[in-house]
């Protein structure tokens, strides 16, 4: 399967949330990485058919998703960033309701609901009302509903928000098993989520795709730009204003070890270190104050 974006642009008034995106996605996990407001969610919604693009089109195997209409929705699974549901519903009832909307029949629907509740670890609370669920439980229920129809195109917008570390690992493993035969589009701003999961990473900034490649390829971008240096604690705020600062580790005698992402060597004593995906994120999204840049 192949999803193709042709010149996708979405405007809200004068603001372009998505700006001329051209892209082709194939089977596997494609992570969409970007800061809040970078246009990830808008692109997800356009892919899910919830929003219409102002310009351009999205096609599945050469056919416009708008023309495919119900046929496209039939193979689609979607987990929005924040989803609403009837709070009086019990978890099981909610999944059965979603099955009905997804056109899944009685016995098969019951089987799928049972399987999905087990998969996300909600079997024990299946008869509890959703209104009493924690954020993480609600998120797991959202994940379960997105997989009910065994979708060929799975769109997940910030799926691990609210999940505890154990659940995050369980979710990652689940996605790994699913990714072989389908297109999974996974929007997040949590880099650790995708390091071991994504076959392809897209970095989105100001509505545009600014980087595209495998995690290894993207890490290459930051080679020679990541530095480690010990500085006095009192200098830290000045450095943070001037450079994109990553990890800060406490050291001895009032010193701290700082990881800096910078095109050039920030200090004489700075040592070049091996980059990670976090550094790539910082490279694109690290905030440096304009005054400091002018210096």
């Amino acid at each position: 399967m192949e999803i193709k974006y042709s010149e996708i642009t979405k405007k809200y008034g004068d603001k372009k949330a998505v700006d001329g995106v051209n892209l082709t996605l194939n089977n596997g996990v494609c992570a969409l990485l970007g800061a809040n407001g970078s246009g990830k969610t808008t692109l997800m919604r356009i892919t899910a058919g919830i929003l219409d693009a102002t310009e351009g089109s999205v096609s599945l195997d050469g056919r416009n998703i708008k023309a495919l209409d119900s046929s496209y929705r039939n193979i689609l699974g979607y987990l929005p960033q924040n989803f609403g549901c009837y709070k009086d519903f019990k978890a099981k009832d909610f999944l059965m309701y979603m099955c009905a909307l997804k056109g899944i029949d009685g016995d098969f629907a019951k089987k799928r609901c049972k399987e999905m509740l087990e998969e996300v670890g909600l079997t024990e609370v299946q008869n509890k009302k959703i209104g009493s669920f924690s954020g993480g439980m609600k998120q797991r229920l959202g994940i379960a509903q997105s997989l009910l129809n065994e979708p060929s195109v799975l769109i997940l917008d910030e799926p691990t928000a609210g999940l505890d570390p154990k659940e995050r690992i369980r979710f990652r493993n689940m996605l790994c098993a699913l990714s072989k035969e389908r297109i999974i589009i996974y929007a997040t701003h949590i880099v650790s989520d995708i390091t071991f999961l994504a076959d392809r990473v897209l970095i989105m900034k100001d509505g545009k795709i600014v980087a595209d490649g495998s995690p290894e390829e993207l890490i290459e971008i930051a080679v020679g730009k990541v530095w480690s240096v010990n500085v006095e604690r009192s200098e830290l705020s000045r450095i943070q204003a001037r450079y994109s600062v990553g990890t800060i580790k406490d050291g001895d005698n009032g010193f701290v070890n700082v990881r800096i992402v910078s095109e050039g060597k920030p200090f004489e004593e700075a040592v070049n270190v091996k980059p990670e995906l976090d550094d790539v994120y910082l490279y694109f999204f690290g905030e440096v104050s304009e005054d400091a840049e002018a210096d």
Partner: peptide, 17 residues
């Protein structure tokens, strides 16, 4: 109760419009 964007976002991707 149906006019709720957060619910519509979820239900809007289902087979039934």
């Amino acid at each position: 109760s149906n006019i709720d964007a957060s619910r519509m976002e979820l239900e809007g991707t289902c087979l039934i419009k």
